[in-house]
């Protein structure tokens, strides 16, 4: 079974973001970029399926600017066999990404596609579900465990009330939640080897799609700042403040 994994280049999750002074967007100049943490989990899961002999080939895909090839090389270093870069400088929203991925699913015919549940820049949480709709495949979102059983896939999902398990026919689309696995770090020799692994570059036009979004970004502002308050010296003082100052008790 071939497994396709979608990886997105985003700001490193440790970086404190800055909004541009003209409020047009978040400022990404000279900011550390990385693979979306949920995509690392998606890659790890695909690589583990290969190590278990269930997956035969792992193909990593990204849609984005030239620089996003860095994240594809990371995926290759982590164990993906080859990579596909759909290159564009447009602002790609989830629907555009899902359209590109849907075309690649048609071309590559994977048995399973794994994505992150959410990109930590837009916090959209949409692409996997959209890809499932566009390909007509079933979806197992927010997965904390997956098990391939013959032609079926069991997915344990993190839902608001606890955990839900569903069974999907394959091929299927899965989105990874935080507890699906703990991703490994790439080792230096693997990073070197990754440089020689195949990386195909295509454009949205090659795929016959457009990625531009009809959801326009009008303005980006910093959130209302929360001012830190005071330190209290004791439990008594805390209770007093909550009763008499904040009036929440």
């Amino acid at each position: 079974m071939k497994v396709l994994v979608a990886v997105k280049r985003v700001i490193d999750y440790n970086v404190k973001i800055r909004v541009k002074p003209d409020h047009s967007d978040v400022d990404l100049t000279n900011v550390k970029m990385a693979m979306n943490p949920f995509c690392e989990i998606a890659v790890e899961e695909a690589v583990r399926l290969k190590e278990k002999g269930i997956a035969t080939e792992v193909v990593a895909v990204t849609i984005g600017p030239k620089a996003a090839q860095e994240q594809l090389r990371t995926a290759l270093a982590l164990g993906a066999d080859r990579a596909i870069h759909v290159e564009t400088d447009e602002r790609v929203e989830s629907l555009g990404a899902a359209k590109a991925l849907a075309r690649l699913v048609e071309e590559e015919q994977p048995g399973l596609v794994i994505l992150g549940k959410q990109a930590i820049d837009t916090d959209n949480n949409q692409t996997g579900q959209m890809l499932a709709a566009l390909t007509g495949l079933p979806q197992g979102t927010f997965a904390s465990e997956i098990k391939v059983e013959g032609e079926k896939l069991q997915v344990t999902r993190e839902v608001d009330g606890g955990l839900q398990t569903v069974e999907l026919s394959l091929p299927a689309i899965v989105t990874a939640d935080l507890r699906l696995n703990e991703p490994r770090y790439a080792k230096l020799p693997d990073i070197m080897k990754a440089k020689k692994k195949p990386l195909d570059v295509k454009t949205p036009a090659d795929l016959g799609i457009e990625v531009a979004s009809k959801v326009k970004l009008l303005k980006v502002e910093p959130p209302a700042e929360r001012k830190g308050g005071v330190k209290v010296g004791s439990v008594d003082e805390l209770i007093d403040k909550l009763k008499n100052e904040a009036k929440v008790l």
Partner: peptide, 11 residues
């Protein structure tokens, strides 16, 4: 967006 560290206005 960005874990609530920015607020986007979208149309």
């Amino acid at each position: 967006i960005y874990a609530g560290n920015a607020i986007a206005t979208v149309q």
